[in-house]
Design a protein around this nucleic acid. Structure first.
Lengths: 231, 231
DNA sequence: TAATAGCGTTAAAAAAAGTTAAGCAAACAT
DNA sequence: ATGTTTGCTTAACTTTTTTTAACGCTATTA
């Protein structure tokens, strides 16, 4: 379950604004477009955002003032400035307000995207990280330690066994696509890797056999499906 | 007690290099200047750095290759590229390697400073305690003194043991790439050095065995992973 | 229903890693 | 200078992990 990054985009040039909005939305972001700083600030107070892109020259409220207002109530949200001016003073003012980046128009949209991602990588994400303890039927499974706690044995899984079981668990009760799995774990989808994968499916079946409610079912020509019958 | 930020600067133009070094030192950074990528990589492996500034076009080893090598053994250290070319492809390649910023020459030194600080604001402050002491599970580890404080013994690590353990710690819970590690510590990735590394992994396992929550796990064909079970 | 592609299983071969110890050279002490 | 310690590499042997092969079964389609 991927978390969508919500971007607040303040840009008075409607052409550019919608172009950016469409581009970023096509890249999987949720983008709220505001036509000036005042509207942007209202949006910021009303909703939650993970990233801000502010044009500097805007009517009603310019980008710097907007950023200052935002910084007063949120010290952490990343801010990236867009500007027509490449002037040194402006850039430095931008950074002094607490900007994360400053991009001068015209720019390539791919560069904007790359810069957004570079910043997002540094933002501490998901504070809620489940402790990774998973139950497959009655069998405890710890993916990060590659451990399977069977009735009278603790089985240490190999790298491949673990990768495969993780994918199966992640797609519990859904079909795990054969070709995609081969590309994901083996890097390449060819005949021999396919046979190798079948061998590992057999290994996992043997390991999980002690709980008769667990089944790794084949879906002919499609892939495998981990089924756990809940009583 | 302010911690000094140590910058690794790779720049073959000695004029610019020393200019930047002086400027950044005057701003309170500790700057190590390397004249090409190869020297920079050796420095990176020998010492600890909090920030990297890499020129792209350099003899011996270019900035992109350098950054890739660095990223293989350190997923987190910030990297900022300097380049004479403003080409879109180069910028995108830079970001795809995992750069945090990309600055085109000529630039204002104040802008460089502002960008460095903007990135450093996002870097989670010292996972390492102020004095450089590290805890691996219940075992205290002082990399700069090559000391491991075991239950009833203080083990002095050898150079290789220490280098390897440092890399493992830096990549805790992530895979430490086998080939990259060999290049980083042994300088060359060949069969015999690989066997040597396995011997050192065995030594470290034995040393860390007293805390059963610590494990140096092998990821077949990829490398090793230090995992510490937190209770 | 015969042909065929896809899968199940087991065994073997091959590759990678674990372990122990011998060998060797540099650093250190005697 | 000579012996000793130390750190590292190389070797030899073992075990684990992964791939490949072989043979049989099952579902799909002509």
């Amino acid at each position: 379950m991927e978390k969508v990054t919500r971007i607040l985009l303040a840009e008075d040039d409607l052409n550019l604004g919608q172009l950016l909005q469409n581009f970023l939305q096509s890249k999987g972001f949720k983008v709220s477009l505001a036509q000036n700083g005042k509207i942007a600030f209202e949006k910021f107070n009303r909703d939650e955002f993970d990233f801000c892109i502010f044009d500097i020259m805007m009517p009603e409220m310019d980008g710097f003032t907007l950023a200052k207002e935002v910084r007063e109530i949120d010290k952490k949200v990343p801010i990236l400035f867009l500007s027509a001016k490449a002037m040194k003073e402006d850039k430095l003012e931008g950074f002094s307000i607490g900007a994360d980046d400053y991009l001068t128009k015209p720019f390539q949209m791919e560069e904007l995207l790359a810069r957004i991602n570079a910043i997002l990588r540094r933002v501490p994400s998901n504070p809620v990280q489940d402790n990774g303890n998973i139950e497959i039927g009655s069998i405890k499974y710890e993916p990060e330690f590659r451990m399977l706690y069977l009735k009278d044995e603790v089985k240490k899984l190999t790298t491949k066994e673990n990768q495969l079981l993780q994918l199966l668990v992640k797609n519990k009760n859904e079909i795990l696509d054969r070709h995609a799995t081969l590309r994901a774990i083996w890097g390449d989808d060819n005949y021999f890797n396919g046979r190798s994968m079948d061998v590992y499916i057999a290994k996992l079946r043997k390991a999980l056999r002690e709980d008769s409610n667990i089944e790794i079912m084949n879906v002919h020509g499609k892939g495998f499906k981990l089924i756990v019958k809940e009583p």
